[in-house]
Amino acid sequence: MNDNELITAVRESVTGVHMTIPEEQIVRRSRTIRARRRIPAAAGTLAVAAGAALAVTALVPSGHQPGHPVSARLAAWTVARQASGDIDITINQLQNPAGLQSTLRADGLPVNVSFSGAPLSTSCQPYDTSRDVLGAVVQLSSSSGSASFVVDPSALPSGTGVSIYDNPGGGVPPSSPSAQGTGSPPPAGITGPVSFGLVYASQQCTG
């Protein structure tokens, strides 16, 4: 018996062996494993729910009529942290950027939020990166006037945070006079009703 025949015989000796456990069972087990790792995320989810409730309250006019169902009005935005660590964000109205910013920061995301063309703080510096890197951080989808994102904080390059803005000129600014180099253009943002970009993280910019 030469080596090739022997190798073939060894390989063929186990070809009748098959995994009989269905994929659903594997996925169920993986959820248990993730749940054990992500206990703090449950607390984050509760905090996020409170933030969403605050957003709804802020939309209600002070003179609203009793009995007018608050639930009939959409929240300006909702945020939900998943057990995997991803953060689901849905923006229905460009309102209460401060509330959205504080809610996301409470979930551990370094972020700066500005709506309605408000200029970004000069303490925020754009972080040049490729669309591939940005795409790994944020996945965007838009439907019926809402913008939905899934943010993966673990995919952020070290030392960076996220800038959320409602038009390219209103968020991440072009290179500031203090920037090094040749004045690079703002990073390519993911555009839709709102846009995303990356900025250098700092206490003043991203909290």
């Binding site: 186990v14 062996v17 098959h18 995994m19 009989t20 456990i21 594997i26 087990r29 993986s30 790792r37």
Partner: peptide, 28 residues
């Protein structure tokens, strides 16, 4: 994966249990 682990451990039930747990960790 199951066949590889089977050759290492010698018992199919044990190998399947080990590989299933490993795949669950991979999924997680």
């Amino acid at each position: 994966c199951l066949r590889t682990v089977l050759v290492s451990v010698g018992d199919q039930d044990t190998a399947q249990e080990l590989v299933a747990e490993a795949f669950a960790r991979a999924c997680a």
